[in-house]
Each structure stands twice: as structure tokens, then as C-alpha cells.
Nucleic acid binder design. Structure first.
Lengths: 182, 182
DNA sequence: ACAGTTTAGAACCATTCAGTACAAAACAAG
DNA sequence: CTTGTTTTGTACTGAATGGTTCTAAACTGT
């Protein structure tokens, strides 16, 4: 019994995720954010609260979409070659400039916004668990190093690549390197 | 034949480095910056130009102080145990919240400020070269992996740890992990 | 048709932003 | 002491910031 909203919540949220992902939290001002979301101020503040709340929701949306997709990919991966399963995490995709939203959030807000840090850590934990799953399914426990340690190495390499990639300073040929440590 | 300045340039620059390192570029406003540098606006704009120029100079100062110190440490390290030489790079120092200025600059400005990205990449290159020096001096070329690839792995692990550490989500016991891949 | 809600969009708000202008102060050279 | 030059700190500026308010429109249930 009221006027229906003219925008789709998820579409707007995806726009928020895109712009925050690409520009970061502080570098995204309200006009940027509103344009990316396709909203005007009235609708935005009523539906999303404020900029910070929207950023936190964008992190959740990243979790639900991007992280979940990556986790699925890892879970469905062929269980005979860990290198081949994990290599996609290190493959250039042409979007290095925006990096990884988790990594961006950790670096920009990790030390000052506890909730953002918690969300980022939770997503990193999901990635780590999926990597660990690949390693155990591929029988990577045989060497001297525990699969858990190997998963930590992989996760840190991944975030290192995402961070360095934003400045264009990360190398590209990861297959040999990954294979050498699996 | 003029009034001498009352502040020391290097001291002020170190203050700028500290605050930019801790808070990042955008999150540091001019009052923050001026207080950290111990200057008022007049002196600041005359001596340092503007905020961006000061940030770039702060990166250079980080290179000249922090990076150089780390590189020296690696260069002077005992040439018989690569793990022991590189472990300090991964040791907690109680200042995880500020992370690594190089990593912070890469993630915050790498994709939008070419000069900041170049400086960050140059510093990362210096770290990589020093790591590579440790590896070759310690005879790490024997395995199947080239020292160059191992240096890249180490560098990416380092930046990954710095990024994750800002959100408090990086694990701590690196000795076994490093030893397992050297 | 009407009443009751919620939307959308623009006008508006105080605050903060980076940067400038300027006048007083502090020195050195003569 | 005077002159010339630079530093310093305050006052100021216009633009941009995130956020609020208000009006009119759009819709639903009765």
C-alpha cells in the first residue's frame, strides 16, 4: 500500500561494490557512489543508511558473489592436480587495477574499522578453507609441509599478488612457481 | 641574509612519513599532516609544495630509511641459512597496524598515481634484489626452482603478510613455512 | 475515488577540505 | 640602525564533503 521503489536493491548494491572495489572507500565520494548505484540521495539514504553501511554491505555482496564463485570453482576442481586447480587464482584477468576487494579493504580500513576487518578476515578464511580443500583432495599432505601451512602460503601469495598487481609490479608466470612448491 | 627556518626539513618529512604510513594518503587531512610535521600552513606550503608532493617525498624518505635499513640487514646477513636471514621480514614487530608503507601505497594509489606506483615498485625491486642476494649467497640455487623465482615467492609472501596483517588476519609462525620452501 | 505510505529528486545545510594571501616577525648584510 | 629577504602563523577562500529536509509524485488497499 505504498509507492514501490524504482530500483533493484541488488543492482544498486552491485554498483556500490564496483565503485568501492575500484576506488576504495575514501576516494569514493557521494556523487560517485550515487551514480554507480543509479540512485539519488533520497533513495540512497533511505534504503542504505549511509556511506559506511553501504561499504560494509558491499563487502557482504562481494562475499556472496565473487568469493563464493571462487570457492565454488576451487571446490569443483579436478582432484588430481593442485597446481592446475589453484593457478586460476594467479591468472591475469585484465582487471589488476582494481585488485581484490578483500585485500583493498584490509589495507585501507583493516586497522581502523573493526567490522570491515572482520568481514575481510572472514572472506580470507573462506578462501583459505577452499584452498585447503583442494590441497587435501589432491593429496598434498605427503611432503614435509602440512596442507594447512601450504594453504597459508598460497593465501599470502594470493594477497601479495593482488597488492603488488595494483601498482603493476607483480610478475605473471606462476605455473612453474606454484608447481615447484606443491 | 634572511630569516632562518625554525624547523628541520628531515624531521618534518619523517613526521609526514609516519602519518601517511599509518593513515594513508586520503585519510590524512591537512591538520593531521601539519601536526605530524610540526608545521603551520605557511611553512608547509612554502617548503613542501602540497600534499601530494609531500606524500611522494615521504615515499622517498621511507626508501632512504626503512627500506635501506632492511636491505642492509639482508646484505649483511650470515651466508649459511637463508631462512634465518629472511625470517626477520616476517617477524611481528608490534606495528602491524600500519603495515608496510610500500604495500599501503601500492594498494591505495597504485592504480591511479603513476609516480607513487613507480616509487613503490622501485622499492619492491630493491627488496627483491636483496632477497635474491641472500638466496644466492646461501646457495639456494640447488633445487629445481631458480633463485629468481624463490625471490619472487618471498616478496609476494612478504606483501601478502603486510596486507593481511593490517586486518589482524595473518598467521605468525613463519619459520617452519619458510624453511619448508628453501 | 480516496486515504495512507513510501518513494524520488532537488534544494538545502553545516562542516571540512586543500590551498592562498598577507602582515608581522626574525634574521643577515651593509 | 637600516634595508632586504625569508619565515611564520593567522585569516581567509571557494569548492567539495556527507548528510538532512521537504515537496510532489506514484502506488496499494479499501
Amino acid at each position: 500500500m505504498a509507492r514501490p521503489r524504482e530500483f533493484e536493491y541488488e543492482t544498486a548494491l552491485q554498483g556500490a561494490m564496483d565503485i568501492f572495489w575500484q576506488q576504495g572507500y575514501r576516494a569514493t565520494n557521494l556523487p560517485d557512489l550515487l551514480q554507480a548505484m543509479g540512485l539519488t540521495r533520497g533513495s540512497f539514504y533511505q534504503a542504505f543508511g549511509d556511506k559506511e553501511a553501504t561499504y560494509l554491505q558491499a563487502l557482504d555482496f562481494y562475499d556472496a558473489c565473487v568469493v563464493s564463485k571462487t570457492v565454488d570453482m576451487l571446490n569443483q576442481c579436478n582432484a588430481d592436480d593442485a597446481t592446475a586447480c589453484l593457478l586460476p587464482l594467479f591468472q591475469p584477468n585484465g582487471k589488476e587495477a582494481r585488485g581484490c576487494f578483500i585485500c583493498n579493504a584490509m589495507v585501507e580500513l583493516g586497522s581502523e574499522n573493526r567490522r570491515a576487518a572482520e568481514k575481510a578476515n572472514a572472506m580470507a578464511g573462506r578462501l583459505r578453507a577452499a584452498i585447503l580443500g583442494v590441497l587435501t583432495r589432491c593429496g598434498e599432505g605427503r611432503g614435509e609441509r602440512s596442507p594447512s601451512d601450504t594453504a597459508d602460503l598460497m593465501l599470502h601469495l594470493y594477497f601479495g599478488k593482488q597488492a603488488m598487481g595494483k601498482a603493476g609490479g607483480s610478475s605473471n608466470d606462476w605455473e612453474a612457481r606454484l608447481r615447484s612448491l606443491l
